[in-house]
Design a protein around this nucleic acid. Structure first.
Lengths: 222, 222
DNA sequence: ATCCCAAACGGACCGCGGTCCAGTTTTCTT
DNA sequence: AAGAAAACTGGACCGCGGTCCGTTTGGGAT
């Protein structure tokens, strides 16, 4: 019903490279050669959106407002980014890619080279920090319940955790377990705990380390 | 900004008894004495909504449609249930209360009387079954990211898990851990895993038992 | 029986996300 | 250089969630 026909010629790969960085294969699809004017408008839109967020918070970012601020038609915004979530995710894309790169090729313990459990610990702490930085944006960019688990960034992170988990606890159902671990790092949860329950970041980190220890049946560090 | 003034005289306790069953205190606020016509319309609306869901699925339940089907003004729907989520949650309320009752006073291992870890296991399996039954409704009733963790039913479930957890693993941060456990039982996740990844219910249950075992550092049953 | 007012009502109204399509611009082909 | 297909554009348009406010009504007080 909702996926009947693409509203536009292409539903458009939403946030730039959609499948990018498929776990190890360095293949990037790169921008699929947008037309000159399209590329220019895309940049304008992203810049306008960022400005609006800075000024009025993520809630004030209306598709119409972004279009107007970029001196562009409303239809253009949707053509380029698919929907509001797509636009917001595109704004997160840069930091997302940097994070992915750090996971795949950065220095240990985040990147390869450290033992898996240690990488898991580092992963969670890094996620927590990143999440706190961009909290409102991450919150606003959350897709609807049906798409939440199929969004590209999420899939990547889950794959990564599942991989580490497979190494650390080969006897477990790492696919299911990875969902559980990732849920602890959910933006909405972090938001709730820090803003509404007064839980300190330190406690969150401790909670993550403890969780990893329990799940992998190892002893907590230090 | 969004919580400035209640849109209506009362934001209205959304889904009937809001705080009901505060962990052990048998206090129920009961309906705060709705006027006769209000009560009648409330019933009509719930019935109409249920019918619409049965006919067109949860997605087809428009506030306007519900109002029309109940021969009632649109404003009335919002006055009574606050917003769309409120209406949907009200539809789940009955099953919700039954479940709460089973947890608080039902026979073991779900209710009191069994050791905490065993109750946790039973809790998860029961949740999984209940979730599968009402999947689409649960999915549609999911509140926005900001309110997801403050909704009354969620709070109750979390409190329950935290309680069991405190008994089973007194040395852990049971508040944080309870969020993690509950996340495994999230409707959107269950939906994703079963519908889109072809994960069988049996595997989900096994995953839960394993998760409980790891988190409580006990051995898996059987 | 009558009065009175808080509570409830209902539908006009608004803003936003999302769609559509007629017209314009770019780029490819020959 | 010219023509045509493909890609892109913009703004009118739609439906829905949510709000507002003038009107009606139930039910306690007298």
């Amino acid at each position: 019903m909702s996926a009947a026909l693409p509203p536009f010629p292409k539903p458009q790969e939403t946030t730039g490279p959609p499948e990018l960085l498929q776990l190890g294969t360095g293949i990037e699809k790169d921008e699929p050669c947008l037309r000159a004017d399209a590329a220019r408008n895309r940049a304008r839109l992203l810049e306008a959106a960022a400005r609006l967020i800075a000024e009025h918070g993520a809630a004030g970012v209306t598709m119409e407002a972004v279009a107007a601020a970029a001196s562009v038609g409303k239809g253009t915004v949707f053509r380029r980014f698919g929907d509001r979530t797509g636009l917001l995710m595109a704004l997160l894309d840069h930091s997302e890619k940097k994070f992915q790169a750090a996971l795949l090729g950065g220095p240990p313990p985040l990147g390869p080279g450290a033992p898996p459990v240690e990488r898991l610990r580092a992963f969670g702490c890094a996620m927590l920090r990143r999440c706190v930085e961009e909290l409102d944006l991450q919150l606003a960019a959350e897709p609807s319940a049906e798409r939440r688990y199929t969004a590209a960034p999420r899939r990547f992170l889950r794959g990564h955790v599942a991989l580490l988990l497979r190494q650390a606890v080969p006897d477990a159902d790492s696919e299911l377990l990875s969902h559980t671990l990732l849920a602890y790092l959910d933006a909405a949860l972090i938001h709730h705990l820090t803003e509404q329950c007064g839980v300190s970041p330190a406690r969150l980190e401790a909670g993550w380390l403890d969780l990893v220890a329990r799940v992998t049946r190892t002893r907590p560090p230090a």
